[in-house]
Design a protein around this nucleic acid. Structure first.
Lengths: 137, 137
DNA sequence: CTGCATCCTAGAAGATACTG
DNA sequence: CAGTATCTTCTAGGATGCAG
């Protein structure tokens, strides 16, 4: 929400770090928009939730695929790679044949996931309220 | 996360209320997936945040459009309508010429917005960490 | 088992013009 | 001012086949 300078909404002529003290999701140019997109696209949030709620050993690719119903192989791979680049997901390749790869949250990822889980949790609890409101309108 | 019965992941043959105690974002059939989509699509979240953070009088359409940079008229109208149907947004039409319409959050909307704001807030604060991680990889 | 490469489509989003 | 209607564009996502 806070900008270094006052020219709100112009094209950036310099790098991010010189222009923003912190991110600003309302600004079209702010990179936080992009990261927000990663988290809020169709599968990003669900992956974070799955990894966060997991109590047992780290998930393998196919376990995640089974858990997150409806996700395709391609999208799961793509999503995991994105989240890994953002520093949210830790990928561990055991370098064996047949392949064995595990996914878990980084400390940073665990922090975002808290908020995503909070949102999803609220939704699951209030879904009936929402649906009944829709029928009325 | 909790289902009434055990047949996890099958096609629903009965209505929602008979099958789910609460929502389950992991289930492809659960309506919470759809609502989650409304909140996490390109503009839904930003609208909720804008309305939530607003301290002054309720926003008018054009004010929202100016605040949320990059949103088109069409998408803003569409998004507001969606959120209104979900029971998150209150639309007040003053029935005057020229038109004067105001948007605010319903109590339900204010609740979801808390979580969305929390997520965006975390993001804005940690965007530098994320960006620096990306450069390394 | 864990992917990547390719191709293809539905639906999201944008541009523009118009109206009460 | 606050939209709607129409048309076009774009891209996220799905299907399939193959590889280490």
């Amino acid at each position: 929400m806070k900008r270094v300078d006052e020219e709100y909404g112009q094209q950036p002529k310099v790098g991010f770090s010189e222009r923003f003290i912190r991110g600003d999701v309302f600004s079209a140019q702010c990179p936080s928009r992009e990261v927000l997109k990663h988290i809020t696209n169709r599968w990003g949030g669900l992956v974070l939730i799955a990894l966060k709620l997991n109590q047992g050993p780290a998930y393998r690719f196919s376990e995640l695929r089974r858990l997150i119903q409806g996700v395709s192989e391609k999208m799961l791979a793509q999503t995991l790679k994105m989240l890994e680049q953002d520093g949210f997901v830790q990928r561990t390749d055991f370098q064996v044949v047949p392949p064995h790869v595990e996914y878990s949250l980084t400390p940073l990822g665990a922090e975002v996931a808290v908020h995503v889980v909070g949102l999803a949790d609220w939704l699951e609890e209030h879904i009936q309220d929402i649906l009944s409101h829709r029928k009325l309108s």
